[in-house]
């Protein structure tokens, strides 16, 4: 048996008559970058929402590192080591970049019922936060308000916040969404540097980025995982070619 950090079994979620997740099985091995691809409407976002805890599945189980987390509230998941980034950038707009990452550091540092010391003067929060900003290449913009950052910079910030949670599994929901080619290239480099250190489940439309990063891929169509395998195996898989790449029956 492979060493699975995330094990999704027979997951089911319907909205009315529409099954957005349909008897879905997915296993992410410890240490790998696992990409999740599929056409629009395949149910990728719904799946991520269930893994992050924002949606509760109708049926099936999600096991994280040996623990059943199917019904665990959103806010408890990061503490187990499951962090996410958002498809549509979701950061704290009135704070600086450094504040944002420091908030993530603070989230890991026990409860926040501390009422007196100035959080912005706490080296225990600011120093690690600065490190994470440097890692994603945003160090120079640490003291800029997020509302003044460019789109690509906010995507980098989003990643830095997720990293600051020191996750054992990182859910990346289209980290390259809305980025230009250069920014995408830079993000691929950053993620490559993290490879091996952090397990990642990557949802991404940019196929070049996916094939550059992923160890394995799972293809999602109409809420079902129709294939899982190495990039080469997926490229060669006739089902995938038919359903996803739109090539009508080569055989």
């Amino acid at each position: 048996m492979a060493d699975l950090i995330l094990d999704v079994r027979h997951l089911h979620k319907a909205f009315g008559a529409l099954a957005a997740t349909d008897d879905l099985n997915l296993g992410v091995e410890r240490g790998e970058v696992h990409a999740l691809i599929g056409p629009n409407g395949a149910g990728k976002t719904t799946l991520i929402a269930q893994l992050a805890g924002e949606l509760t599945p109708d049926d099936g189980t999600v096991t994280f590192d040996g623990r059943d987390i199917t019904a665990l509230p959103v806010h408890q998941r990061p503490h187990l080591g499951l962090a996410r980034s958002f498809q549509i950038t979701s950061v704290l707009m009135d704070f600086t970049s450094l504040d944002n990452v420091a908030m993530a550091v603070q989230a890991r540092a026990g409860h926040s019922f501390r009422f007196w010391r100035r959080a912005r003067a706490e080296r225990a929060l600011r120093v690690p936060a600065m490190d994470y900003l440097d890692r994603v290449g945003l160090g120079a913009r640490a003291h800029v308000r997020v509302s003044a950052l460019a789109h690509g910079e906010r995507r980098q910030l989003e990643l830095a916040m997720a990293l600051a949670l020191e996750p054992r599994l990182l859910l990346l929901d289209e980290p390259m969404a809305g980025m230009g080619p250069e920014e995408t290239q830079r993000m691929v480099q950053v993620l490559k540097a993290l490879k091996g250190e952090i397990t990642m489940l990557l949802v991404e439309h940019d196929m070049d980025a996916v094939f550059a990063l992923a160890d394995r891929l799972t293809v999602l169509v109409y809420g079902k995982a129709i294939a899982t395998g190495t990039p080469d195996a997926i490229r060669a898989n006739p089902d995938v070619r038919r359903a996803y790449l739109g090539e009508e029956g080569g055989a």
Partner: peptide
Amino acid sequence: GCKQNERRMRALGFP
């Protein structure tokens, strides 16, 4: 943080 983006705060692990 909650005022600015409650969903994000929850995803960071704050109850």
